[in-house]
Design a protein around this nucleic acid. Structure first.
Lengths: 225, 225
DNA sequence: CCTACCGATCGGTAGG
DNA sequence: CCTACCGATCGGTAGG
């Protein structure tokens, strides 16, 4: 029952273990992102932490285990985004608008994790790859459902919701390729523009609550964090 | 002057050399795509060809050289698509519609090459990576120019053409992730739908030649090949 | 273009 | 959790 993640009332021992795991993952993310998984030795990860390789093996079963953790966090952030909007007090248009913003934000905030997953999936154990693929499909299924809701409510015009979900998902996911944290476009601008584009793609009227069952507020709460 | 690609009047010697190169690349594409670059040994590539490793070294300098050739062909196919529409007898809307179709077709026909490039760029030599990145930027620049033409002609409504180009490029490029050659959606349908979506995104009227300088035909010639 | 081999790299672990 | 090491893998090539 002694978990390795932040548990309420966890002793110092657990907090230290968690800290060590987090620092290790963080160093691995930087190096895997920069050089690629196969071109990064565990000795290099350890060196960046100022320790030696057995330190890592005290907290992870294998190199692939580290990769699994990184990739899982990447898609989990996107999945959290869609789960978080499902319960909003808004119609399909309001939900989709907010999803566009949160999904894009998740991708950009987890840019390195997403990139590593996209590039290194062949280095995951088959079991883990399958588990993560299921999460991805879960995301797609929920997005398709939201699009179909919007069609049923008369708010969206979409010939093929399945394909629309893939188009939207791709447009946003691909941002991990070109986004630069200190580039020309600030993260919130990208997120806002993606949101706007998505509404255009599905044929929704951006602002006015058309004929939503509950009136969708023009601005939802400003993305607290 | 004796090139290793198909030259007119090339002797049997050159044709054989070309054939061997092509077969080698093809085997490498299959294996790199399926297992990943680092998880594929040159012995495995040779085995698939029914030869041994030195056969490969007679035609390529190194394993990375093979990868370079594959990645180059991947983006070259996308670059060809945009170059091929620039000279069309059509206004911005007609050109963009046809680009959507040809670009998507190129991505899907070169699906494995594109996937390998996206995943394995860290395994390219820096020089080659830079050269290929330049090709990619060339594509983006030309797409931005086309979008700006459309804005200037009053056919498109685009707040930020640069970002629009990235959004369009991402939506289409990402298709390498989900497209399956014998899946539910036939390639021409995907290409047509992407084309339609792109026109919607830029705010163009899909069919009628609005106020294009030259009237854009509703259907351009059906994609001869 | 094959046989045979080298040489370096690196994930993982024994022992303490 | 460090020191020290093993064992396997594999790109590349010498020699013919």
């Amino acid at each position: 029952m002694a978990s390795s993640t932040l548990a309420p009332g966890a002793g110092i021992r657990d907090e230290v273990a968690t800290l060590k795991r987090e620092r290790t993952i963080s160093a691995a993310v930087d190096l895997f992102y920069e050089r690629g998984y196969e071109n990064t030795t565990l000795d290099a990860v350890a060196e960046r932490l100022g320790v030696t390789k057995p330190f890592i093996y005290a907290h992870f079963h294998s190199k692939a285990d580290l990769l699994t953790e990184i990739c899982t966090r990447g898609i989990a952030s996107a999945l959290d985004a869609i789960n978080s909007i499902l319960g909003l007090e808004a119609g399909p248009t309001g939900k989709l608008e907010e999803l566009g913003r949160r999904f894009t934000t998740a991708v950009l905030q987890s840019q390195m994790h997403i990139a590593i997953f996209a590039r290194e999936e062949k280095n995951l154990l088959p079991v883990e790859f399958d588990r993560i693929s299921t999460m991805r499909r879960d995301f797609d299924r929920k997005l398709v459902a939201l699009l179909e809701d919007g069609v049923a409510a008369g708010e969206f015009r979409i010939p093929d919701p399945q394909m629309m979900a893939l188009a939207i998902g791709g447009m946003v996911s691909w941002a991990y390729v070109w986004y630069r944290p200190n580039g020309r476009l600030p993260l919130p601008d990208v997120a806002g523009e993606m949101s706007r584009l998505i509404l255009t793609m599905v044929g929704a009227k951006p602002v006015s609550p058309t004929r939503a069952k509950r009136a969708a507020p023009a601005k939802l709460k400003p993305f607290g964090r």
